[in-house]
Design a protein around this nucleic acid. Structure first.
Lengths: 360, 360
DNA sequence: TTGTATGCGTTATCAC
DNA sequence: GTGATAACGCATACAA
């Protein structure tokens, strides 16, 4: 019966310098049992003051940090929340993750981030790997369409939040705004400013497409001419925006206003217009998406559709924490809305400063 | 002796719908032992084809995903790399993390990200918590100065990379560039363009300070007047940049050129100058740091010091993987250098397009 | 106030 | 080719 106790105890000493100290090392050093060390962390008041001091000294001496893998296994709880985003290189996601991380950290949860890099195939693998870490909750960006992923998430038995995109058939919970409403609002906003011939430059991902569709539908409803839509694969960039604008000016139809799926694309459009001496908003109005921090720094300052990433992150954190606490889920779906932040790039001479916002 | 086998076996069925399937559930369903299931994943060729098929069918049926907490505990290896950054909302860090994540993912490693939000006190807690996850390696941004953190990292026994800031006394490994060289290079670059009265707008963090000091030293060496340094707490923003510029113009000394510790600050400076009708670079030249994606979108396009975050991330990943493979560590320190990307904001009428770069 | 025994889910080792 | 067993580090129930 070669049990741990029967054979020579394994300690930091004979495991080499690379091994981390365990609760056993601390116990041995302090001359107490494992339980006493465990209690020194969880219920210190239950211990005799001198025992506690001895244990704490031992913990410091060996640099003891509890092994969360063991804790997780024992408690079936990892205090880990996973977040799957397309990329970290987009402002909205950063903001969301920062808020999510901060809010969860207060309750002792950490956030494990996964990036799909906009590769659809990678999402399945990523979700599977991630679920292997047994997070206590998982947040995915956008709505989950892939059947395999949906099943994986549903079968995981943990709270799932689809963030940033409000759809009806969410797996579990959702927080974000309606891309349909957004597309329609932008269209009617531009129409309200007197623009007739509208164009869209956007990524070809699912969310953008639904925005575009709603935009086009609204244009039709308002009796405007067909919208000129140009799609490009993400990620967007300044050169891409310039190129799209150059192509439009050279070969495309004449337009009064352009809605860009990202502020970076819009920035490229502004640059190309400046280069060619085209007045913005005089000849062409431009509006972006995301209200990135640099939108106000562009020339002219860029009108943009602001989605409050921080609020999404905070809401998501709150929803997770409620579920972790076993509370009845109040809301399965939260609409944080969006705001059209108007700056010079769409401002008509006579139009006063204006804000338009949507909330469900 | 109430062992698992003696009592009723616990399976997914009687643990409720929320519990994830374990290797035991799969084994029971396939009518094989635990080891056979384990082997079906690790050494499938060792199994009889029909057995393998049966096990795989069972795995699919219950949606089995191995519990990494258990694997980690068993193997003393988490396939997790931790990265501590000040914030996700800075382009260089995003780029670095994206590259790091992508490179490590190929080898089956995931990246656990922690944000200090520039709060010095939070770093200790964060590192401690993070080490509790027993990552196989840890990357920290900037050089580690805090004694406690240094000890914690050194005692962890895992590969440690200090990224983005090359210092002599790194804990283990380092990849990045020298902030001293950077500061000096920017100063001499501006001096080379004929500027005499120089100013710096920067964050008050350690790295920025060392840049500034080197900048000032270089100015002195070149016989220029004292540098006007203005420090602000991070994070930087467009309004902050504007405010700093407004204050300088209203109350500060006259300057020919301003070096900004971030592109966002520089963008604010450009906006304020435009507002006041001050010619850039005619009256004042402006240079930023980071070569953010929007630098080229500003007006005038912003000269900026580019640090290749992606390269830092890739280098770090390669260094980690080498150590994980047990290979002798080739280099403990890698200098990825930096590049001054010159655009309109510093370009003198007669000066041709120019690039300046440093590599150790 | 402190200690002992057991199992969380997995894999290495040995046995058949 | 397959199975039984112990152990990874920790926390809970139960004893003392």
């Amino acid at each position: 019966m070669p049990s741990r106790k029967a054979s020579a105890p394994v300690t930091t000493a004979n495991r080499g310098p690379t091994a981390k100290a365990t609760i056993r090392d601390v116990a041995a050093l302090a001359g107490v049992s494992l339980m006493t060390v465990s209690r020194a962390m969880k219920q210190p008041q239950q211990l005799a003051p001198e025992t506690l001091a001895r244990v704490r000294a031992a913990m410091d001496q060996v640099g003891y940090v509890p092994n969360m893998a063991a804790v997780s296994l024992r408690l079936s709880q990892t205090r880990l929340v996973a977040a799957i985003v397309p990329t970290l290189a987009t402002h909205v996601f950063d903001t969301m993750l920062a808020a999510l991380t901060a809010a969860l950290a207060k309750e002792g949860y950490e956030v494990l981030i996964g990036q799909t890099q906009y590769q659809p195939g990678r999402e399945v693998d990523l979700v599977r790997t991630t679920l292997g870490r047994r997070p206590d909750g998982i947040l995915v960006t956008g709505s989950v369409q892939d059947k395999t992923v949906r099943n994986l998430l549903a079968a995981s038995g943990i709270p799932v939040i689809e963030a940033g995109d409000l759809v009806r058939n969410h797996v579990d919970m959702a927080v974000g705004m309606s891309n349909e409403k957004l597309g329609a609002a932008v269209c009617s906003h531009l129409a309200g400013l007197g623009h007739q011939r509208l164009a869209i430059f956007s990524g070809d991902d699912d969310r953008a497409q639904r925005r575009n569709k709603a935009f086009a539908r609204e244009a039709a409803r308002l009796g405007l001419p067909p919208v000129h839509v140009v799609l490009v694969p993400p990620p967007t960039s300044h050169p891409v925006g310039r190129k799209l604008m150059a192509d439009l000016l050279d070969h495309g139809p004449r337009v009064d206003a352009i809605y860009c799926g990202s502020d970076m694309t819009a920035a490229g459009v502004l640059s190309e217009c400046r280069e060619r001496g085209i007045a913005v908003p005089g000849e062409i109005a431009v509006i972006g998406t995301g209200d990135t921090d640099f939108a106000q720094a562009l020339y002219p300052p860029l009108t943009s559709v602001r989605v409050d990433g921080a609020r999404i992150g905070e809401c998501a954190a709150a929803m997770f924490l409620e579920r972790f606490a076993g509370k009845p889920q109040e809301q399965k779906s939260v609409d944080v809305g969006f705001t059209i932040v108007e700056r010079e790039s769409t401002r008509m001479e006579s139009s006063a400063r204006q804000r338009e916002s949507s909330r469900a």
